[in-house]
Structures are given as C-alpha cells and as structure tokens.
C-alpha cells in the first residue's frame, strides 16, 4: 500500500507533469483499495528529453519562414529538380542545391481528415493533413489545410499559404487555406 498518499501524488505529478487528481483517478485501486501482493503493480512514469536542435544546412528555410514570411525550396544545380521539403544536396545527382523562392499557391494532391488525434493533437480534431504541390516545387509537402467546413476538402483543391502571426521557425509557422477564400483564418 502506498504510504503518505498526498506526498506520493505530489511527487508523481511533478515527475510526469500530470495534475495530481488525474493520477489519483488512474491509481485509485492502488491508493484506496487493497490489491493482492501478486497483483500487477503499475507506476506513473515519463520519458522526456530536451533539445537545442540544429536545422543544419536547411536553417535558412526556417529563418525565411520566421523572419520574412517566405517559403523556399531548393533547386538541384545539376538536374534542376526543386525540392520541398528542401535539402542542400540532390540525392539523385549527388550535387548541391540552391535556394529558390516558391509561390504562395498550391494544389492538394491528397489529404485525410484526422478525427482522433495523438495526445498532442487530441483537442484539435478534426483537422486536415494533406500533401500539397506548391507552385514552383517538384515534390509534395505535408501540411495542414484550414477549412471552414472540413467536409469541403478534396483532391485538386487550390489553396494558398497563410502565415502565423507569432512564428517560431518551424512547420507550424504556416498552413494553407482555400485560394478563393478572402477571409482571415489566423
């Protein structure tokens, strides 16, 4: 039986970053019942690591997004293919690429609607994940499409880029909205 229940809950809450009352609910049997000595014993735990992650050669892509509201791809100096997601070298030619600014518009090549998300996105459903072909790029990139009516999502839909006001230098800095939609979705 757990001794000093309040302290145990407080420590567990600090450790796994979950409110004590939710932990109390999950561990009700262990806290209040009298499980047999051989009954499976569960523990609250978490695995987390903090980073100071480097974007390496594609750092400029995220600086342009964050500082200039611009979307860049990278063009192979040999075959001319424009990559998005960008890369500093072409894996077909094994040659370097050069930065190239891409258009604001794109076409939805395929999509799905997520109605049941991961813990991180649980409160954001439903939302659209799509592969879009950005004007000027030769590959497709995965991005979210914001729609007033989620059921209007379709393959072939023309969309335009929209930037978040507070940008952090990550893929969450932009998304797409219908190209013919004049309204502000931010």
């Amino acid at each position: 039986m757990i001794q000093h229940k309040e302290q145990w809950l407080e420590q567990a809450s600090r450790k796994i970053k979950v409110p004590a009352e939710l932990i109390a609910k999950a561990f009700r049997d262990e806290l209040e019942g009298s499980p047999a000595m051989d009954a499976p014993l569960e523990i609250p735990d978490i695995m987390d690591i903090t980073y100071k992650y480097s974007y390496g050669g594609i750092s400029r892509f995220f600086r342009e997004l964050r500082d200039n509201r611009k979307l860049y791809g990278s063009r192979c100096t040999q075959c001319g293919k424009v990559w998005l997601p960008p890369r500093i070298n072409c894996n077909e030619c094994y040659a370097p690429t050069k930065w190239v600014e891409l258009g604001d518009t794109a076409e939805v090549m395929t999509y799905t609607i997520v109605y049941y998300g991961t813990s991180t996105f649980f409160d954001k459903v439903p939302y659209v994940c799509a592969f879009v072909k950005v004007k000027g790029a030769d590959t497709l990139i995965m991005q979210n499409i914001f729609l007033k009516d989620i059921r209007t999502a379709k393959v072939g839909m023309k969309v335009k880029i929209q930037f978040k006001d507070q940008r952090n230098g990550d893929m969450g800095d932009f998304w797409y909205v219908p190209a013919d939609d004049g309204h502000d979705h931010v």
């Binding site: 999509y111 799905t112 994940c129 393959v155 990550d170 893929m171």
Partner: peptide
C-alpha cells in the same frame, strides 16, 4: 521536422495514398 508537427497519425499515413487512389 517536416511531418510530426502536422499531427499525422499512423492511420493518416495510410489514408493519404488511399485517398489519392480513390480519387
């Protein structure tokens, strides 16, 4: 860097090729 932030799930990663196929 490029896919995790979109909220992709395992089901979504199968649905994307499937929707294109259905289309």
């Amino acid at each position: 860097t490029f896919e995790n932030p979109s909220g992709l799930t395992a089901a979504a990663s199968y649905a994307l090729p499937l929707i294109a196929h259905i289309d």
